[in-house]
Amino acid sequence: MNKKSIFFKDSAFKYLVGGASMVVVGFFAMIFVMLAIRSYPSIVNDPLMVFGSTWDVNSGIFGGLPAIMGTLASSAIAVAFAIPISLGMSVFFTEYAPRRVRAALSVVIDIMATIPSVIFGIWGLWIIAPLVKNYVQEPIIGSIGFIPLFSGPAYGLSLFLASLVLTFMIVPIISSLTISLLSSTPAELREAMISLGATRWEVVRHVALPFSKLGIFAAIILALGRALGETMAVTMVIGNSFMWPFSSVSLFSPASTITSKIASELYEAVDMLHVSSLIELGLILLVITLTVNFSARLIITRISRRGATQ
């Protein structure tokens, strides 16, 4: 092959990749513009109304703050639960589990990652809700229920239950990525640490985890994105009450998220301002997820650049 044809192939490839990314960017811009146009009526009506705390369709008041806060709270709680569970599982999996347990566990993780969210919803509604009500909410309310965050009554459907179901949905995401990161830790680094007299745990702590930390961070952000945008399962178990956190700040109260709000109201909304307000909430969700992703990217490039020049 002569130089020219290699060059041609190379540039053809470049155009192909460039073209494909333009399509993606264009598509994304289209979604954004569509959301912006559809939320325009609500924005011009009152730009700040969406951040109010009251949502009253009959009086034409559409304050979406409860949904925004529900989205942030349920995702934050889910991620906070999922991080220790996933890291613990991944470390056990890569460092301690006997081979047969490992094989079984990896099948379980893979299957969990493919379960449709409506199944998580049903499972949360029928199995986890009663369990959580009897064995988590009631004992906690009974003992430390005087703290507003944990006050009663113990409804099954609640922000807490939604966070828990989200936790189960994102644990496989974080775990499977973390497992592949931990197991790709270079053997020579592990051996170096072992040869200094390190225990297994010390090898994990001083070699495998530092080696994987950026990737784990990225996995957590990916999971956070999934939790922020999850609709079906959350709508089924969160109780869809639009009072939280303004009537009660308790984690055991029913609440709502942006996604559950849109999913449960959009099909029956007739009033233009109502529709437009829901779409504006969607736009806000998109902005939240974009912000999370871009700041994560920024942090990752910062850290890896610092690592490179140090």
């Binding site: 270079p186 020579e188 680094l189 051996e191 170096a192 640490m193 072992i194 040869s195 200094l196 007299g197 390190a198 225990t199 001083h206 070699v207 530092p210 080696f211 690592g307 140090q310």
Partner: peptide
């Protein structure tokens, strides 16, 4: 074994400093 490895050190074929450490 940890005690053994503290008394008997090892240097490997490929230099393997910990990249995340100074």
């Amino acid at each position: 074994p940890m005690e053994v490895r503290r008394k008997i050190g090892m240097v490997f074929q490929k230099p393997n400093p910990f990249p995340n450490m100074s």
